[in-house]
Design a protein around this nucleic acid. Sequence first.
DNA 1: CGTAAGTTTGACACGGATCAAGTTATGTGG
DNA 2: CCACATAACTTGATCCGTGTCAAACTTACG
Lengths: 250, 250
Amino acid sequence: MLQNANFHHGKEATNVAFIDREPHCLLGLFKKLPIERLAAGQSLFFEGDPAKGVFEVVEGSLRIFKIISDGRRVITGFLHAGDIIGVSLKDRYLYSAEAITDIRIRRISRKSFDAEVANSPELRPEVFARLCDEMAAAQDQVVLLSRKNAEERVCTFLLKELLRVLCDGRGDLVIELPMTRLDIADYLGLTIETVSRTMTKLNKKAIVVPAGRHSIRILKRSGLAQLAGNDDENGGSRMEMAPHLKSLRH
Amino acid sequence: MLQNANFHHGKEATNVAFIDREPHCLLGLFKKLPIERLAAGQSLFFEGDPAKGVFEVVEGSLRIFKIISDGRRVITGFLHAGDIIGVSLKDRYLYSAEAITDIRIRRISRKSFDAEVANSPELRPEVFARLCDEMAAAQDQVVLLSRKNAEERVCTFLLKELLRVLCDGRGDLVIELPMTRLDIADYLGLTIETVSRTMTKLNKKAIVVPAGRHSIRILKRSGLAQLAGNDDENGGSRMEMAPHLKSLRH
DNA sequence: CGTAAGTTTGACACGGATCAAGTTATGTGG
DNA sequence: CCACATAACTTGATCCGTGTCAAACTTACG
């Protein structure tokens, strides 16, 4: 996990002046390290493996997932360029990581990473902030899986992907979705059929238009946001809710 | 969140020697602080409020939850004695916290907390460890909500509660469940009716026996574990899974 | 006791899963 | 570059688990 919130990833790869002295940010830790490559479908590590490395995604996308008893797969997140994998771990990886596309990554040993962070009062807040963002994302996912129906789930997902690429600069409303329908289904707690049907429905509503198998054009961002059913726009739970009235929800 | 993993909470309240010098653990930070009380049903803070405090639960239980647009409530966790609330936050609370029972808590300002942690190389690993445990718990919840059916959810919940109280010492297999059925339902992504029916079913299977409204006796812990469908017992996802075979899952 | 909140139980409905074809991309070897 | 093979995706028919609605029951408490 550890999606980067607002980084223009790789942009600061140009000014490499200070990095050997003291990195200003987490990504700086990786600058000097060699690039490794992984082909689409290859595994970076497995759930339960000793967490020996921390990784920066330089290019491409990964899925992180758990497999439960009977073989069911739960994708807990997608990772893209600029993200860092493996911070929120103690000794073992909590999940497996697999390349969706061909990827380029940099690797730092957990020992070095921990040492660098421990020694740098500048880095610690960034680690903490990333952990908090990751936590917030996990909770959003809990809300999605607890209470949202198929349409809300798909719209939430598309909106999130849209916001991610908008941060990357271009204002174009075409999102790349490198992952398969099965990946999306396993991420949203649905089946591929339901994801597919929901996409078709959104298309008929003229909210999105498919643009090839792995990208999609957003026609009505507002419509997406509305159907996503996020609580972001309303006042949240700020208003007092008298305990004896709670049962009114049902 | 931030359930304590294995603390015998309150036990070390007896040796108060060092705490004003340098606390050995996070809970030590709270030792000197006055106890505050909150009656059952009262709110500790609301989602979106400035995160001004960090709290130790001294006695009693709380629920933490989010309310989404149309009033639906998602409980993201329960807190009990020894737990700490408010670590994984930046400036605003991500959720509301409400007392389930009458509770006793201690409060420290976020400023003091951050300062103490920043100054103590002893405390930082503990904060980090608690964040990681919290993250792992959130991911378990994602797995539960993604792919588990009602029976698996309820069994997972009961098993977790069982393990929690077993850590507290006594080997008795009666668990206290201070929360209501509605709380459990909102935590497991179900309705009260489904929770109730599932409990009845587990009773008929002679796995549990109700012992008053707010406690339950576990007859077959192994049966619970089996029905919970955790991946803990199998080899996890260690075995290589050839990419072209993945679709066999469906 | 009597009232209300919490819980259980039953009947029924419906959203999404499952099962089954059919269709469209993606690649691969001739 | 085309023909073919295969994986990925879409669409349709049906089923089932859980939600919804309603009512009875139990517990807590004034």
